[in-house]
Design a protein around this nucleic acid. Structure first.
Lengths: 254, 254
DNA sequence: CGCTGGCTTGATTCTATTCAATTTTCGTGG
DNA sequence: CCACGAAAATTGAATAGAATCAAGCCAGCG
């Protein structure tokens, strides 16, 4: 881990859907929540750190002094409790380093080369307590991550390999969509094993899944890490495939 | 929904593990985070609401004006997107009513009779912006819910019915543990179908799962909703059963 | 007392896991 | 730059386990 006490392009940034006031549920837009002033303010207490591909960022249970804010690159967060399980893939403008009583609640590894701001928790706390607006932004981000985790859970609850993979691709695409343009290709920085651990299936099943999606002309694979969605209609249909035992309507008294 | 503008026993309360300063990872204690003053303060902007068993509390996509803080009873949060899927069971001192751009991000139904504080979001925002400490507590609670969601995901990623059920029982037991005493019996307020939707298996599979746990003398079932854990050792072993394809160790450069 | 809804159980089918063998990719050193 | 070796990914065949469909059971309630 390289550590250089430099303030750099703009300062920390947080990307999320604002839970509070705004608009209509279909337009769900990701915003950069911090103002330039806030970013500058946070920059004063943060330092830039770099990690090589595959490098450990922190480990579960370690004393936590730092929260990270990704500038570039991709990080995976995982728990190695029983079966290895990837909790989330984290992209630029995400916060990494969830705490639990002053210790990290999961582990994190750089999937690609990563640049990040390191925010010392005590200084961060101090900064937050000075600025309610800033604190709101953190709350917004946490709500966002919570929803994200719930979508992940929804994915894991699916029973068909293709459904899971379809949802996975849509998730990744969504994460990579900045602003308007709906990226031509989904970029998959992680390897197949990581995907398997994220979607909760075996590695061969992931492999077969991709093969089948290609065979059915739903996606095209340029290269292990670049997937083009050819037939979005069918993909969405797969992703929301409803086939679960008792589809008897649920009652709602009153 | 009965609505009575009364301030009542103590005011809103939040239960969570404090992410920040404290202690050691094994002791992980759930605290009541709000001081009496804070609770009183929140009580002034909140009203008490009651829901009957089975009553809808809010629905996904609705304009959200209110966040709920459970006083007594149990709530289930779910998405009905594709396959029905229960996101979480919520207990007293939890916050319900996750927002996304001013709309509810999921639906909620009372599993038992429920009493809750209704906190109007604008007033809540105002109150929060006046009090940084209070805001910290909300952040702490969100971190807690996030971890909770990740545990749920870990459960869903398991492939064996018994493993899922074992984890489920431990989760519920943990939620019901107040303070020191490790409750004699786990109380399951939800029906088998709810459990099925939470753990991501079919209803018959849940039924068989419980039957097998009983047959193997790991639990005892007094009544549909009261389960006693007899052989905690084996249960934990099941819950952390490691059987997943390529258990080759993962490398970590540097 | 019989009905209803939640729950259990049985038989079959389906799909992903597993184990194993093979191919491809990629990084490294000659 | 190419050749090699190791890691990643793919593929095949057999198996295990849960979903599904369907029938029966039990408890609570009018």
């Amino acid at each position: 881990m390289t550590n250089a006490r430099t303030n750099s392009p703009g300062g920390p940034a947080i990307r999320a859907v604002d839970p509070w006031l705004p608009g209509n549920p279909s337009t769900r837009r990701l915003h950069q929540l911090l103002s330039n002033e806030e970013r500058a303010q946070l920059a004063t207490i943060s330092s830039i750190v770099r990690f090589k591909k595959g490098e450990q960022i922190y480990s579960q249970g370690e004393r936590a002094h730092t929260i990270f804010n990704i500038v570039s690159g991709v990080v995976k967060a995982y728990t190695s409790n029983a079966t290895d399980h990837i909790t989330a893939f984290l992209y630029p403008q995400d916060l990494v380093g969830l705490l639990e009583e002053g210790h990290y609640a999961n582990s994190a590894v750089a999937v690609t080369a990563v640049t990040a701001y390191a925010l010392p928790t005590p200084a961060l706390r101090r900064e937050l307590s000075k600025d309610a607006e800033l604190e709101f932004h953190v709350i917004a981000k946490l709500c966002h991550e919570l929803r994200q985790a719930q979508r992940h859970a929804l994915l894991l609850a699916q029973r068909h390999a293709l459904t899971k993979l379809a949802m996975f691709l849509e998730l990744q695409e969504h994460l990579q969509t900045t602003g308007e343009n709906p990226v031509a290709e989904v970029y998959l920085p992680m390897d197949r094993k990581d995907i398997a651990e994220f979607v909760g299936m075996s590695l061969p099943a992931v492999s077969r899944g991709f093969r089948d999606l290609v065979a059915r002309r739903i996606i095209r694979i340029r290269d292990r890490r670049h997937v083009k969605i050819v037939d979005r209609g069918t993909l969405e249909q797969l992703a929301s495939r409803t086939s679960r035992y008792p589809l008897q309507q649920r009652r709602t008294k009153q």
